[in-house]
C-alpha cells in the first residue's frame, strides 16, 4: 500500500502525480474536494488501474451534505431529518451548504436576522441550502477507523466502510447524528493514529 500525503514516510503528491503507480494507494492528503490535489491523487491512482482510498466518486459524494446524509442513512447510521431549501424558511436551525464551496461554512442560527444572513452567505445568493434542526453541533476528526474522541470510533469505521475516505472532520447533531463532512487541515492530521491503524492493514482494506 502506497501512502500519499505530506509527512515523513509518505509519498508527496507532486512526485506521485508524475509516476505511474502500480500498487494500492491510501490517499492521506486530507482534502479530497473536486479539483484539489487530494482529488487529483485519487484520480491519478484510479486512471492507472490502482485500488485507491478514497475513490473520486466517494470523494465527491462525501462533501455534499444531502448525499452524505442519504448514504449514511442507507448504510444504517442514524442521521438527522433535513430539508433542502431554495427559499428562506426561517427557524432556529443549522444551515449547511449543499456543495463544498468553502472548507467550513455551517452556521447555527437562532433568530430570523441570523437566518437570512447565513442563508444568503451559505447559498451565495443562488444555491440551495441544507437545513436541519439541532440544539448543538459537535465536531469529530476521523483518522481511518479512529476518531479523536474515542466514543466516535464507530463513526470513523462507518465512514471509512461506506466512503473509503480516511481523513476528515464530521459535524454531528444532537444524539450522535452525523450530517456534514469537511476536509481536515494538514496540521490536524494525526499520522500516529493512522500508522497505528495500518498495523491492521489486512482487516482495514478487506
Amino acid at each position: 500500500m502506497l501512502l500519499v500525503g505530506e509527512g515523513d514516510d509518505l509519498e508527496p503528491p507532486d512526485s506521485f502525480l508524475k509516476k505511474k503507480p502500480k500498487s494500492d494507494v491510501l490517499n492521506l492528503v486530507g482534502d479530497y474536494r473536486f479539483l484539489t490535489v487530494g482529488y487529483f491523487v485519487s484520480l491519478h491512482a484510479e486512471e492507472n488501474g490502482c485500488k485507491v482510498f478514497p475513490q473520486t466518486k466517494d470523494a465527491l459524494d462525501i462533501y455534499r451534505a444531502a448525499v452524505f446524509i442519504e448514504r449514511l442513512k442507507k448504510s444504517g447510521i442514524k442521521v438527522p431529518e433535513f430539508k433542502i431549501i431554495y427559499k428562506p424558511e426561517p427557524e432556529t436551525c443549522v444551515l449547511a451548504p449543499m456543495n463544498p464551496f468553502s472548507k467550513n461554512s455551517v452556521k447555527i442560527v437562532k433568530n430570523d436576522y441570523q437566518y437570512i444572513k447565513a442563508f444568503k452567505k451559505i447559498g451565495i445568493g443562488k444555491y440551495p441550502v441544507v437545513q436541519l434542526k439541532a440544539d448543538k453541533v459537535e465536531e469529530v476528526k476521523i483518522f481511518l477507523n479512529k476518531a479523536d474522541k474515542t466514543e466516535f470510533d464507530w463513526l470513523a469505521r462507518a465512514i471509512f466502510k461506506e466512503f473509503g475516505v480516511p481523513l476528515g472532520k464530521v459535524l454531528i447533531a444532537d444524539d450522535y447524528k452525523p450530517f456534514y463532512f469537511m476536509p481536515i487541515e494538514k496540521k490536524e492530521i494525526r499520522l500516529d493514529l493512522i500508522f497505528e491503524e495500518l498495523k491492521n492493514e489486512n482487516r482495514l482494506f478487506c
Partner: peptide, 30 residues
C-alpha cells in the same frame, strides 16, 4: 460537481431513478 445539477443527479441516482446526465459523466466531463 460544484453546481446544483450534480446534486440533483446524485440524489436521483440514490433514489434509483433513470437520470440523464448521470453523475459520473458530469464528473468526467467537468
Amino acid at each position: 460537481p460544484l453546481l446544483t445539477a450534480f446534486v440533483v443527479s446524485r440524489l436521483a441516482e440514490e433514489m434509483g431513478k433513470n437520470v440523464i446526465d448521470d453523475s459520473e459523466s458530469i464528473r468526467i466531463c467537468s
